[in-house]
Every structure is written in C-alpha cells, then in structure tokens.
Amino acid sequence: MSRGPAPLAGALLVALGLSTPSCLSVTWQRTTSQHALTEQALANLPPHGASLAECLAQLGAPVLVREHRVHGLVLVYAWENDRSLGLSLSVPLGDRSASLAFTDARLRAHGIALWFDDDWTLTRWQRGRFADLVATTNVRPATVEEIEEEARVNG
C-alpha cells in the first residue's frame, strides 16, 4: 500500500506550483537609504542662533524643503537602515492581472525636521519617524492673498 509523498516533498511541490506563475512571493529585505545625521552634527546648530547657510554647510542638502507659515521654511533630513518583511501576490486575469503587496519599510524611516523663521534662522528641530515629520510639514503653500496679507500685517 502506498503511503503517498513525504511531507517535505509535498511542501516543495506545492511551493514549486505556486512559484511557477510567480503569483506569491515573500521578501525579506534590508534597506539602507542616505546617511543618518549624528547628534554631533546638530550640536553646533543652536536654535535661535544658527542660520540657514550654517545648517546647509553642516548638514548638507535635505531630503525635503517645505514652506512654513508663509515666509519661514522647514528642512527635513531622512535616512533608513532597517529590515522588513514583505508579501506580494498577483493573480493573472486573462489579459490583465491583479496584485497586492505589503511592506512596512517606509513607515520606519527616521528623520530630523528643522524649522526656520521668516529670516531663515533656525528656531527648533525635532527627531521622529519620517512619515510623521512629513505629515507635520506637508501643508498647502500660501496663496497670493495670504502672502500679501502677511506682508501687510508685518509692514
């Protein structure tokens, strides 16, 4: 009486069957992006003292620059050194295909945001997750009317 294929052979055959149309894959990925800013780099940049020129010279070019309260600005530096597990699934549907992918890598990037006032002098900085910093700094640019109103109020 046949006992059928061994469990390991069965598992390999199932895996082989699934992989043939490339419909399912599991990805383990180590991701490095940009270089982290050190505490030492920020130590020489005191809030209410450092200028934009000094910050750029010390820290280099940021990943993002955003407007802050019409005439101010925010610089965001970001980096990533992380491991993530991802899963992707695609299903061929005739001449089209549907796919689904998941990974949490983007959420774990870190960064520092630096806020500058109207004179582009550093006022404060904050460390955090890149996604949170972007959510904080991504605001609609001022309209022409808002810029003129700001200029009128400030003389």
Partner: peptide, 19 residues
C-alpha cells in the same frame, strides 16, 4: 529560493538645493 527572496538594498544620493 522559489517563493522566498532576500535582498539588501542601499540607496545614496547626490542632492543640491538652491534657494
């Protein structure tokens, strides 16, 4: 290995901002 992919990705940039 069949369904399982392991990789290591490093991304670095030359970037210039002009104000």
């Amino acid at each position: 290995l069949i369904l399982f992919l392991m990789n290591n990705r490093d991304t670095q940039s030359d970037r210039t901002w002009v104000f």
